[in-house]
Computed example of a mutant assay.
Amino acid sequence: MQPVLLAKAFRASGKDPSKVRPHRKLGQAGDGFAVEIENDRAPESVVQYVETRFDDLLEYFAPTIDAMAREGEIKPAVRDAAKGAEYRAAFEAAQRQREEAAGRQEVF
């Protein structure tokens, strides 16, 4: 069995201590892929992934992703280059319109 990257943990609710709130914490396999940082808004820490290790993280999960796709739990992502180019062109056109409107001090 593969070591766990994120482990489910529980803590008492701040509003009602009789209730428990789930959250995620870094598991044994998370070392090097992510770090836990202090959260100003909640008592539990937040998991933040290391951007430079993302390709390694994806490679680590590749066998799990393949198995889930084979078993029908998830659908594999299929990229459509033409659709992506169309989306990017529309997004860039909208961005240009916003910039031009801002230059004319119009409300968009």
Results as ranks from 00 to 15, higher is better:
R79H: 12
L5I: 14
P76K: 00
Y60W: 07
P22K: 06
R88W: 09
E100A: 06
I37H: 03
T52W: 09
P17E: 02
E38M: 03
P76S: 01
E71G: 02
A29M: 00
Q95I: 12
S45N: 11
A89Q: 04
A82N: 09
A29G: 01
I37M: 03
Q28R: 11
V78G: 03
G14E: 13
V78K: 05
S13F: 02
V35Q: 03
F91I: 15
P63V: 05
L26M: 05
A34I: 00
K15A: 06
A85P: 05
S18V: 04
V78F: 04
I37N: 02
F61D: 09
V46H: 04
L57I: 06
A77L: 13
P43T: 03
V47Y: 01
F54R: 11
Q97H: 09
E36N: 01
A34D: 01
E73Y: 10
R70T: 13
E44A: 03
V35F: 02
S18T: 11
K83C: 11
F108Y: 10
K83W: 12
L6G: 02
A82Y: 09
G84S: 06
L5T: 05
G14V: 08
P22I: 07
T64G: 13
R104Q: 13
D80A: 00
E99I: 05
A12N: 14
E51S: 08
D66R: 08
E59L: 09
R98E: 11
L57A: 01
E38Y: 03
D80Q: 01
L5S: 02
D80M: 01
T52R: 10
K83P: 06
A67W: 09
N39T: 03
V20T: 15
A90P: 02
F61A: 07
R98N: 10
E51Q: 09
D16F: 00
A69L: 07
H23C: 07
S45F: 03
P76M: 00
A69P: 03
V46S: 08
A9M: 10
Q2C: 14
Q2P: 15
L58R: 08
E106M: 04
K8P: 11
S13N: 06
L58C: 12
E73F: 07
Y60S: 03
D56A: 03
L6S: 07
A94R: 10
A82T: 12
T52E: 15
A102P: 07
A7D: 15
N39V: 04
A67N: 10
S18G: 04
K83A: 13
A9C: 11
I74P: 00
V4A: 15
D55V: 06
I65H: 04
L58M: 15
F61S: 08
K8M: 12
K75Q: 14
Q105S: 12
A82C: 08
A102H: 12
E44P: 00
K25W: 06
L5W: 01
